[in-house]
Design a protein around this nucleic acid. Sequence first.
DNA 1: ATGTACGAAATCGTATACGATACATCCTCC
DNA 2: GGAGGATGTATCGTATACGATTTCGTACAT
Lengths: 236, 236
Amino acid sequence: MTDAAVAPVPVTQDGAEIAPGSSKSERSYTAIKARILEGSFTPGYRLVLAKIAADLGFSVVPVREAIRRLEAEGLVTFKRNVGATVSGIDPTEYLYTMQTLSIVEGAATALSAPLIDSVATARARAVNAHMRECLEHFDPVRFTALNQDFHSILFEHCPNPHILDLVHRGWNRLATLRSSTFRFVPGRAKESVLEHEALLQLIEAAADADTIERAARQHRIATLDAYLAHAPALTD
Amino acid sequence: MTDAAVAPVPVTQDGAEIAPGSSKSERSYTAIKARILEGSFTPGYRLVLAKIAADLGFSVVPVREAIRRLEAEGLVTFKRNVGATVSGIDPTEYLYTMQTLSIVEGAATALSAPLIDSVATARARAVNAHMRECLEHFDPVRFTALNQDFHSILFEHCPNPHILDLVHRGWNRLATLRSSTFRFVPGRAKESVLEHEALLQLIEAAADADTIERAARQHRIATLDAYLAHAPALTD
DNA sequence: ATGTACGAAATCGTATACGATACATCCTCC
DNA sequence: GGAGGATGTATCGTATACGATTTCGTACAT
């Protein structure tokens, strides 16, 4: 579970063994996306068609298609006749993304809550406990991964796949921040763990949808607020 | 405004005059999308690469790229080695889309509300009055277009473009239903007009964000509920 | 020394060609 | 007469080639 969040797709250096059955276009997409999410391709990295095609052993056409798909997801920025670069995320973009995420995560949590059984809450608690450990050992990368795992458990039986898709898109968009301390605002992580516990209690108590939605939304907003409070220091 | 909603992009039969400056890939995208949204390409319509390319006077490569982009937006369904068809929207898909729309529209309305001035509310009222007329003359197509115009006015200064983008995607997804009576559930249209007025009053009264969000969300949900109540009759 | 014009290199955009796949049709065999 | 397989056609998937555009460095003139 956790490993999957860090490296969702197995990738070899030459990218040849990814889902051998699917098209090269598909494999290009998967390979490039994996490298962006795992951090090999950092924001600003220039994605040169011919170079990537050579790396993967494909021609440029499928690679081009893959990059356009990634553009549609906001993971890369494309400029005509110039090329594609891995999207960065400036403070404004961060704000938009976090705000949107708060809304869709809130909705996803409220919709999923009635379907979360005691086994799932137990698993979520285990992950949350693990997060607390990461906090003590100061391991922001693992903390972030576990944070996603926690919410993924809650969303496992989300009845609306569209909303879930929006959540994932937001997460992917934020993933390019992985190696920075942008998301790890001092003091927020501890609160986050506490809020997770409070959220689980609301779910177990079968609180009404509005209450759960509000709590889940606030959980994300609080991180945004913490960032905004520190913005002068974090924005260069 | 209204005309724009019905035919957002001017398209000639041969598609040659769309934004002459942009790439053929871009023009293909615009042309195909326009035809889907205006209803020339109805759900289930088979998009054959070579045929479309010939129609547009381009080669298949840019057309292919355009279709993949439309796929990412959910407007067309692509099957490997088989081809693309204009996406239909079955009852389940309709439910997902409406539910998601209710959430993002609710958020968009709440975020925009403080920025809506009296000029905008007056314009919105005019559109709403026009909708009432369409109701009397039973003009579902125009009604639907005006309905979008109404909300577009509210969202004009939406501070979060990401959320606005999600709203538009939902609208586009529903647009393939244009020529059917699917969306025009008996009795709902009248309520819709009344709800618009109520929403405007909340906005003018500077009601708190939660209240406005709830009202806006409910506005969409009510249509979904009305559909669900009639589902046995409408689902064949 | 600085600004401008020119040219070369890098990279993308599109066309064309051909191989691969899937689906439909028809034929054969039982 | 029906079921199974072989064949044909439509269509997609990818490679390669070349033209178009941008960018950057360099040389020249001021």
